[in-house]
Amino acid sequence: MKTDDANAVINGAGINFSFGQGELRKQILFDVELAIQPGEIVLLTGPSGSGKTTLLTLIAGLRKLQEGRLDVLGHSLHNASQTDLLQLRRKIGFIFQAHNLLPYLTALQNVQVMFDLQPGVTIEEGRERATRILQQVGLGERMNYHVSRLSGGQKQRVAIARALVGRPELVLADEPTAALDGTSGREIVNLLQGLAREQKRPILMVTHDVRVLDIADRIIEMQDGHLTASSRGSSSAENHPAKGVQNEPDIAAVTF
C-alpha cells in the first residue's frame, strides 16, 4: 500500500481511535493505514464490532480524529474545524443502511433537496439532473411518488440517486444492501458500481454481504480494529469497465 501517494482520495496512517475515558476507555482502531485511489471501488469487510463503521465515520469527518494522519479529498482531518468538516462532507456522497429519506417529500424532491447544498446549480438544472438520475436508477415512472409509497429497494435507489446527484468526489456506503433481499441487493450494488465507474467516483463500502464482494477492485478486511488483509477484488476498473451493469444498458448510455 502506498500511503504517501499524492493522488490518493483517502490517505491515512497511524490511526488510533478509542471510545470512553479512563477506566472505561476502549480502543476501537489500532494503527490503521489505508489509501484509496481515484476511481477505485473498495469494500471494507469484517465481523461486527471490528471497527469498520468507526473508520467510515472518521473518513466522513463525522468523528474527531484522535491520533494519526488522515487526508480525505485534500482535507487534512487532524484538528480540522467544524466548517472544514462540513465542506468536506458536501463533497461526499453518503449511502446509509437506513435510507432516512424525508417522508413528506416525493422521490424527486428528496433528490432535488441536495442542490440546496450547491447554490450555483439553478432550480431548473437541479430538477433536470434529479430527473435524469432517477431515470437511471429505474424510478423514472415513480419520481413523483411520496417515498412512503415506495418499496425498500426503491427507497434505497432514491438514496443512491440522492448520494450521487451532486457529483460527489467520493462515495461512502454503509451496508447499503443489509435491509434488502438478495435480488434487490444485487441490483443496488450493480447500479452503484455502474454509476461510479461511469463518473469515475471512488467508492468505499462497508459490507457484510458476501454476495456483493465481486464488484470490488479491492477488499480490505478488518479484525478487532486492525486491517488484516487486503486483496484484489474480482472486478477491476482497468480490466472490466462497467462490469455488472450489463443488465441495465441505459445506465452506461446516459451521463449526468
Binding site: L62, L86, R89, F94, F96, N100, L101, M114, L117
Partner: peptide, 18 residues
C-alpha cells in the same frame, strides 16, 4: 420524529442553520 432524517441531512453536509 424526524431526528434520524435531520441527522442524515447533517451528515450529508446540511448546516445547522439550514
Amino acid at each position: 420524529n424526524h431526528l434520524p432524517q435531520y441527522a442524515t441531512m447533517k451528515a450529508m453536509g446540511f448546516s445547522d442553520g439550514y
